[in-house]
């Protein structure tokens, strides 16, 4: 079974955006497992990976129900190729070092938390239920990544330098989560998707406050031309999917 993925249903596209974001970030964090700076951080990052994979399943299951047979959470995760993936480009960026991992995490969490806060009020009951369930985990993610941003930003000269470099490097990807894709705009007008314009001030405020406390310079806003939400990705995603989908591609159609 190789699903050519063609559904244009905005609700499906939106579910995939939310699912792909957390699956790909979970996949990245899973790479840390066994390699963290201390056992405690190893456990925390693995735990976030676990939260994210769990969240992705809820969205995929919903999308699969909307699509009907033969779709399933696994067919959606394992049988779509790069152009059918809707995640923002931030989450596919590589781990590199702990600084880049933490900045990536904070840039994601500082959007994700306020996003879920609003998604709880979605006109779509299923999405609002998923948001209500996930936000408890994400509140902790945000606390963790905020604290580590501050700790490392305001730690030693070396850690400050690494954090500033990571921020400068990833900043270009920081705004995509706030730019609606066309399918998103359609659902915003129906009261289903989160109106990103409504949360952007909160996101910006949180980022500013944490970077300030971390003594990090927040770079100027840069217009972003990437469009992961519409399936345009950086070079990383192809490699991520190669690993992620290896078993399902090598041994199609089996139960595991």
């Amino acid at each position: 079974m190789n699903l050519e993925f063609e559904s244009q249903d905005p609700l499906v596209q939106y579910c995939l955006l939310l699912a792909d974001n957390v699956l790909i970030l979970g996949q990245r964090l899973g790479e840390w497992c066994g390699h963290g700076p201390t056992l405690e951080q190893d456990i925390a990052l693995t735990n976030f990976a676990l939260d994210f994979v769990g969240q992705s399943r809820l969205y995929y299951q919903y999308a699969a129900e909307v699509l009907g047979n033969p779709h399933s959470e696994d067919s959606l995760a394992f049988l779509r190729d790069v152009p059918a993936y809707n995640n923002i480009q931030l989450v596919e960026q590589s781990n590199r070092d702990f600084a880049q991992t933490i900045i990536r995490q904070f840039l994601f969490d500082s959007w994700h938390y306020y996003f879920l806060e609003q998604l709880q009020h979605s006109g779509d009951e299923r999405l609002s239920a998923i948001a209500a369930k996930s936000i408890k985990e994400v509140a902790y993610h945000l606390r963790f990544s905020s604290e580590w941003t501050i700790r490392l930003g305001d730690g030693t000269e070396e850690s400050h330098k690494k954090m500033q470099a990571a921020l400068n490097r990833l900043w270009v990807f920081s705004q995509e989560s706030l730019n609606p894709a066309d399918y998103e705009s359609e659902l915003i007008s129906k009261g289903i998707a989160v109106d990103l314009a409504q949360i952007s001030a909160k996101v910006a405020q949180k980022r500013k406050a944490i970077f300030e406390e971390a003594t990090l310079n927040m770079p100027e806003l840069i217009p972003f031309f990437g469009n992961g939400k519409k399936g345009l990705h950086t070079e990383h995603l192809g490699f991520i999917l190669t690993e992620l989908q290896y078993m399902q591609r090598a041994y199609p159609g089996l139960q595991w």
Binding site: F98, R151, G155, S159
Partner: peptide
């Protein structure tokens, strides 16, 4: 070794 700067900074 990669984690040393993190532990020091903390």
């Amino acid at each position: 070794e990669d984690g040393e700067w993190v532990r020091e900074a903390a």
